[in-house]
Amino acid sequence: MVDFIQNCLDGVMLGSSYALLAIGFTLIFGIMRRLNLSYGPSIMLGAFVGTLLYLEFQADAVVVAAATVAGAVLAGMYVERLCFWAIRQGAAAASMVSSFAIWMQLEELVTVFFPERTYPFPPLTEAEPFSFGPFFIKVENLAMFLCALVLMALLHVVLYRTRFGLAVRAVSENPLAARFMGINIGAVMFWAFAAASALGGVAAFLIAGADAQITPLFGLWATFKGMIAMMLGGMGSIPGAILGGLLLGVVEAQSLWYLGTEYRDLSAYFLLFLFLVLRPGGLLGHGRATRERAATHRV
């Protein structure tokens, strides 16, 4: 029982980073109804901008964090202009395929300058794990979890208390109606994309910092984890992304403990498989009918 609860604790903290990745994915999907496969690679690029400063100039963590976010946002804007803005509404597959091409491009770009498998990243904290009753808590995981909570609260405030947030929600609910209100949907999509990339940049800094290392494969990893968590929660739903991320984290932590390392990813895919068969809309996804209605309302 103690093991089980310990795994849940670990899983929730790990899952909070998945949740951040999934929020970035779901923001973009919710507002554009299109999948951005190069989300992971663009935040990976951001992390390598951070690493570059760390290795070359021994920059401290705050500078590295800022550089990571800035790099991720710039890469995200590049992807938005090339794969989403340039491709007209309705051609969802073209956006997805071209974002896959940009994925390859970004990954190649990074491996040209960083040919090794892994590079050091400034650790989030040097503190030792502490015990809490019978449980152990890693300080870096706790920090990751708390940062994720703060970011989610911030995102909630932006979405539900600001004019920009209102525009984002209007566009994701009905882009045509949003245009009738005078909302410039191109601009809203661009800035929402940038915001999603910034969230991803913070997630990349936290995840790489918790591991104290970064690899060019991080892009692939982040795209998979973020996408699985998003699909578990329900595509386009932010609370769903959070729940999906936490669920994925807990399931991975449990299978890591009870089944062994090699089953960690396998159990994640199995979970996704179960959801796709039994509950394809995800935990909090909209029903098929509303999604189809939303699709037919677009021009």
């Binding site: 929600r169 209007a170 609910e173 009905n174 045509l176 109606a177 009738f180 509303t290 309302h297």
Partner: peptide
């Protein structure tokens, strides 16, 4: 078809 924002 009205097009209200259903989730707002």
């Amino acid at each position: 078809n009205r097009l209200v924002f259903p989730q707002m």
